[in-house]
Design a protein around this nucleic acid. Structure first.
Lengths: 188, 188
DNA sequence: GTAGACTGGAACAGTTATGTTCCATTTGGA
DNA sequence: TCCAAATGGAACATAACTGTTCCAGTCTAC
């Protein structure tokens, strides 16, 4: 990895840190955090929009790779979701800005790519509803969003120090799979 | 309600609409949406920060009132959560900006008030864990965040047209209470 | 060690939002 | 009707960020 690649990576990492804290932070702040001159930032990412696009695409790639690496189309669906959760959650709060950036919200193609990245998860959930391991009275779209939402919540909550990130996968899985109530059969 | 009160309300409502779509929108846009001159906006809210504070406080009041009106400390906990859900969800996507505004995130007292508003919910959940209706292997803080997160997800998802807001209370309750898996007892 | 790539600082213009002031106009209640 | 409150528009100063240019300095691969 040559110097340009390292500089580029520093900038992307710094941008994640800075922009997830304040999505309207200045590029000067990003450059400073990356330990790089503002001029250099503009050499790599001529405009703010291009920086954010690159940022989101980078994050999307990481999520898509993480999901694919767990082969969510194989084995029992609940096990598959467990693998996805264990792999994606540690990617960390650093990705939660995906949720907030207005630039993301208004770029059709980025939204499309976001749902493309989640498509394997959607398919696993559909498979689970078909084979009877997941309840089928909830729309697949809702289940996907609720599942992703739980992961985002875990990131936020861990970020605020209300839980430990290492506990997050269990909390997410228990909550989303079994819910917060005791089983009806537990009643006398 | 005199003219000043109506103007103030128009401004707050417009601010919710505009800022929840783009949290960096200009005050001119807010004023225009409220059908009010920019000068008038500044008369009511001298600075942008004060507008946002007023906005958040207004939203907090609405949520707190909605929660209180359901008396979450009475009756079976799951019924109480159902009442809270049915009452809070219709308050609508208009409140989801609570989640995004950086000004909110960086104001200690607003965060504190946010959790104060949720305190009755936290107490209900604690009560449920004590009386055995909710599983007690999850931290109360996590359960509160997961529950609120599910409502926020429902708002976002409804906003994007992936579900209908009128279905949201059932989806939220089913998902958070029972989870997305079929009951173990459903297996042959 | 040297050439070419890479970097950083400074200075600049252009744009945009904010907050203020002043004044003319409209509104609504007494 | 009349008066005081409320409003809106225009103009202004200020501040901040963006994106560009130019140049001098530094690193690195050869």
């Amino acid at each position: 990895m040559g110097r340009p690649d390292r500089t580029r990576r520093s900038l992307l990492d710094a941008a994640v840190v800075v922009l997830s804290k304040d999505s309207s932070a200045s590029l000067a702040e990003v450059a400073a955090t990356a330990g790089v001159g503002r001029t250099t930032l503009h050499r790599y990412f001529p405009t703010r929009e291009l920086l954010i696009r690159a940022l989101v695409e980078d994050a999307l790639d990481r999520v898509a790779d993480a999901i694919a690496s767990t082969h969510p189309d194989e084995g029992p669906v609940i096990d598959a979701l467990q693998r996805v959760t264990d792999t994606v959650v540690p990617l960390g709060p650093s990705l939660s800005f995906l949720h907030a950036e207005p630039e993301v919200y208004n770029a059709r193609d980025l939204i499309r790519r976001w749902y493309e990245a989640l498509e394997p998860v959607a398919q696993a959930i559909e498979r689970g509803q078909d084979d009877g391991s997941l309840r089928n009275d909830l729309p697949v779209k809702w289940v996907v969003d609720a599942y992703v939402g739980a992961i985002l919540t875990a990131w936020d909550t861990a970020d605020e120090g209300r839980i430990w990130l290492q506990d997050a996968p269990r909390l997410v899985m228990t909550t989303i799979i079994s819910g917060i109530a005791t089983l009806p059969t537990d009643a006398p």
